[in-house]
């Protein structure tokens, strides 16, 4: 699966990987806000944003092609909307729509490709995202693949039965039954997890292991990213 590639990328090392997740998150937000507020006619600004992003990708030492391909997943949707916009007689806006969504997607991808999800979640938490939500995301990500695998097995089993000539109605109810079983297993798994947590002395509070350090380099990186984004937005 594709996300595994991104996860592997996130564990590499590079100047960009080494930056604190909060600094990268702040830089990303500044960049995205600058792009979003840029008027569609400012073609030179979009070139400059792309150049800035290219510099970041190079310093992350990640494969250009892989990143671009992954970011292109947004293109079918944005191309559709861009086509409609073009057709409605606003080509500049159409191009801006496609370009904006692609560059933004690529920038977001660069963040997750240089930051392990745990660090990202810790950063979000220290920026004020409620702890229960962070924990739910953490558990969701942990069990996403475990439960998806179960669903995959069920789909395989359903496909094996497909030749039996069942009508659509009974196949519909068979799918509902499978969904029910998947639900039941997930619920029981959650109970098992909670039991395992209690067995290891869980007393109602999760404590993060290592608080990340926000160093001078992180600060410098954040300032540079914000300054560059703002400068492009205002000057071009």
């Amino acid at each position: 699966m594709h996300h595994v590639v991104v996860e592997r990328w996130s564990r590499r090392s590079s100047p960009l990987h080494a930056r604190d997740a909060r600094a990268k998150l702040g830089a990303l937000l500044a960049f995205l806000v600058a792009i979003s507020t840029t008027p569609p006619q400012a073609a030179r600004a979009f070139v400059a944003y792309s150049a800035l992003l290219a510099v970041a990708i190079v310093s992350a030492r990640l494969p250009f092609q892989g990143l671009l391909g992954r970011a292109a997943l947004v293109l079918p949707l944005s191309a559709t909307f861009a086509a409609v916009t073009w057709w409605s007689g606003d080509p500049a806006r159409a191009i801006a729509l496609a370009v904006k969504s692609f560059i933004s997607g690529l920038a977001a991808l660069l963040l997750v490709a240089t930051t392990p999800l745990t660090q990202l979640l810790n950063a979000l938490e220290s920026l004020g995202v409620p702890r229960p939500l962070i924990l739910v995301v953490q558990f969701l990500y942990r069990y996403l693949f475990v439960i998806s695998e179960q669903a995959q097995h069920m789909r395989l089993a359903a496909r094996c039965r497909q030749g039996l000539g069942l009508d659509r109605r009974s196949r519909f109810y068979a799918a509902a039954g499978a969904l029910g079983v998947l639900f039941a297993r997930s619920w029981e798994r959650a109970d098992g997890i909670y039991r395992a947590m209690l067995a290891r002395g869980f007393s109602g509070r999760f404590s993060p292991l290592a608080p990340a350090r926000f160093g001078a380099r992180d600060f410098a990186f954040l300032c540079a990213a914000v300054a560059a984004s703002t400068a492009i937005r205002l000057a071009l």
């Binding site: 229960p132 924990l135 739910v136 995301v137 953490q138 558990f139 969701l140 942990r142 069990y143 996403l144 475990v146 439960i147 998806s148 179960q150 669903a151 995959q152 069920m154 789909r155 359903a158 659509r168 196949r171 519909f172 799918a175 509902a176 499978a178 969904l179 998947l182 639900f183 997930s186 619920w187 798994r189 959650a190 109970d191 997890i193 909670y194 947590m197």
Partner: peptide, 21 residues
């Protein structure tokens, strides 16, 4: 908390189960 996370994963995974319509 673990229940909510696991149910989120369930909803993700449930999208693999196709309903003929």
């Amino acid at each position: 908390i673990p229940l909510l996370g696991v149910m989120g994963a369930f909803v993700f995974a449930a999208q693999m189960i196709n309903f003929p319509v």
